[in-house]
């Protein structure tokens, strides 16, 4: 459900308008955090438009509409929920082949590659690698929310499977590398391009 054609179709559908994740994610099943991570979409974090400004089809029935209304309480964070298409997004909308380059440049590529060194690994080792990565980042900088979240890693793995680079096995418990592009091979240390 996160294969390249669907992503391309979604990007062309968004065009120059504003894409809200509460409308598109349930419809297409594509995780917006992944698209932002790949550089296809840029989150709108300042002067976030209310829902009626960009004519969202869910006007009136969406429970998140109150969060974006002008007088909404600051308790609910409004950032990272509405996006615009980035230039690479427009390029991929035109030609899907570009996607593979972006996927291998994604900040999780290194982490996945180092986990699949021996060709096969359990999903738990992948999740543990992400935990270690977050702990290391907290140790280094002491920031609160690490950049990468687990749902984005899950969507990334499903995208790799759609591209045919990896294969889920024994009922989703482990992951086998089918053909990893050479430049995705594990660099010496964790790259952090966020």
């Amino acid at each position: 459900m996160a294969d390249p054609r669907l992503i391309q179709q979604l990007l062309s559908e968004i065009g120059e308008g504003i894409a809200c994740r509460h409308y598109h994610e349930p419809r297409t099943g594509i995780h917006f955090g992944l698209l932002a991570g790949l550089g296809l979409l840029t989150p709108i974090d300042t002067r976030i438009p209310p829902c009626d400004a960009h004519g969202c089809p869910l006007l009136g029935q969406c429970e998140h509409e109150a969060d974006f209304a002008p007088g909404a309480s600051p308790r609910q964070p409004k950032g990272n929920r509405k996006f615009r298409r980035a230039p690479e997004g427009a390029a991929v909308a035109a030609d899907a082949a570009l996607l593979e380059r972006l996927v291998s440049a994604h900040r999780l590529a290194g982490l996945v590659a180092s986990a699949l060194r021996e060709g096969k690994a359990s999903v738990f080792t992948l999740a543990e690698a992400l935990l270690e990565h977050d702990l290391a980042q907290v140790e280094r900088e002491g920031t609160a929310a690490p950049a990468v979240r687990r749902r984005e890693l899950g969507a990334y793995l499903r995208l790799l499977e759609a591209l045919g680079w990896v294969q889920f096995e024994d009922d989703g418990l482990s992951l086998r590398a089918v053909r990893l592009p050479v430049h995705l091979a594990p660099p010496t240390q964790l790259c952090e391009t966020a």
Binding site: V123, R150, L173
Partner: peptide, 13 residues
């Protein structure tokens, strides 16, 4: 847990 390993984010809404 394995089935839902990537379905949750700490401190999401």
């Amino acid at each position: 847990l394995a089935r839902h390993l990537f379905d949750y984010d700490g401190r999401a809404e």
